[in-house]
Amino acid sequence: MTAPVQATLGPQEKDLLIKQIPALKGKKILIIGDVGLDEYVMGQVRRISPEAPVPVLEVDGEDKRLGLAANVAQNVASLGGIPMMVSVVGHDMGASLLKELSEKNGVSWHYMIVDKHRPTTRKTRIMTGHHHLVRVDYEMKKYLSEETEQKLLAMVEKHVGEADGVIIEDYAKGVVSRNVVEKVAAICKKAGKRLMVDPNPNHPGTHYQGIDLIKPNYNEAVALTGYSFDDLKDNPNKVVEVGRALQRVTGAKEVVMTRGKDGMTIFSGDQITEVPTYAQKVFDVTGAGDTVIAALALGLVSGLSLVHSCMLANNAAGVVVGKVGCVPCEIPELIEYINEVH
């Protein structure tokens, strides 16, 4: 079994990453996946309702953010790239709010498809401080109609030639069917574009056959390969075993497995490389995976190696986990963060 190589972020690597950041500017990433609106209603609870035994939230603030694959798109934009967000929304207020927020954050609405028979995904979190009282979801978890799916694939085929790289971001809301993955993989292969996938463990690994790179976290990788945690608990090489299995199941040459405080394990052909985490403060991991796939894709299409692209992505993730909610990584923050890593 090939022994993993340990990658380190020394002065040379830091200098390389910082010098590469301007090269991300203008790189086009075509993103296919489920989009949504994250809404936050925040306030104080000081009493129980006289109408029912429930807390009364006295609202003192509201916030709306891009969620799901739209957060990947805004991370591409904030890092200097140009996101081409291909997805499906409803004909409703959620879509109007999402459009306004997308355009404000540098995400074009040009590639969006409207299906009046589906609601736009919205997740409304009612919060006091950092505590959730309740979450209200507006969504339809079913695959697209044949007509809408064909429109989505036609949009990808029409614009893939403009893109430097392609991401499928699967939140299992219905956009990323097996047929979509298969057809997009064929389109990318024909166009000579690298296809990267941020998978969902609700789908088996075979759902993603034909892709070039897959980026699960460890728990997702276990689910995708069909292992159980009991099968692996006494295996000292379980990370390697799962990564290799995922390469076999999906046919992907490259697997980037994120492992929280243990960093990343990268499988590229026969080579295995460990990249440590650079997170200094962790407040909220929400959206960190979106930041990782955005930075990873931009690094690769700008000419960085896979290992250096993962280092860039790990630093970008370190920035966003120090914040609350789905927020993008900005270039000045990223440069400062890389400089501060010990």
Rank of each mutant, 00 (worst) to 15 (best):
V222G: 05
G226V: 08
K189N: 11
R194V: 14
H203C: 14
M196V: 11
P204T: 09
A191M: 04
P201Y: 05
Q209T: 10
Y208G: 13
E220I: 03
G226A: 13
P199V: 05
D198P: 06
P199A: 00
D198V: 09
I214C: 03
A186K: 13
Y227T: 00
K193N: 14
C188Y: 00
P199T: 03
A223S: 15
K193A: 15
T206Y: 04
G210I: 00
E220L: 08
L213Y: 00
K183Y: 00
P216S: 10
Q209E: 15
L213I: 13
P204Y: 03
N217W: 10
Y218F: 15
G226H: 11
I214S: 03
D230Y: 00
M196T: 12
K189S: 10
A185F: 00
C188F: 00
Y227C: 07
V222I: 11
E182K: 14
P216H: 07
E220M: 07
R194G: 01
D231Q: 08
V222M: 09
R194M: 15
Q209V: 03
G226Y: 08
G205K: 12
E182L: 06
G226F: 07
L213D: 00
G205T: 02
Y227H: 14
S228Q: 06
D230M: 14
V184S: 13
L213V: 13
G192Y: 03
I211V: 15
N219H: 13
N200L: 09
A186R: 12
N202C: 04
D231H: 06
K183V: 11
I214E: 09
P216G: 05
V197E: 08
P216K: 04
P201A: 04
V197Y: 08
K190N: 14
T206R: 15
M196R: 00
T225D: 02
I214Q: 03
H207T: 13
D230N: 10
A191T: 04
E220Y: 00
H203R: 15
A186G: 07
P204N: 08
V197D: 04
A221G: 09
G205I: 08
L232M: 08
Y218R: 15
E220G: 02
K189P: 04
I211Y: 07
M196L: 10
N202H: 05
Y208T: 04
S228M: 00
H203N: 15
Y218C: 09
G210A: 05
H207W: 12
Q209G: 13
T225G: 07
L224Y: 05
D198G: 09
N200G: 08
T225H: 06
I187V: 13
C188A: 11
K190W: 00
H203K: 15
G192F: 02
A221F: 01
P204H: 11
T206P: 10
Q209R: 15
D212H: 09
Y218V: 12
R194K: 15
D230T: 12
I214V: 12
A221Q: 01
D198C: 06
L195W: 01
G205R: 09
I211T: 09
L195C: 07
T225W: 03
K190C: 03
S228V: 08
G205W: 02
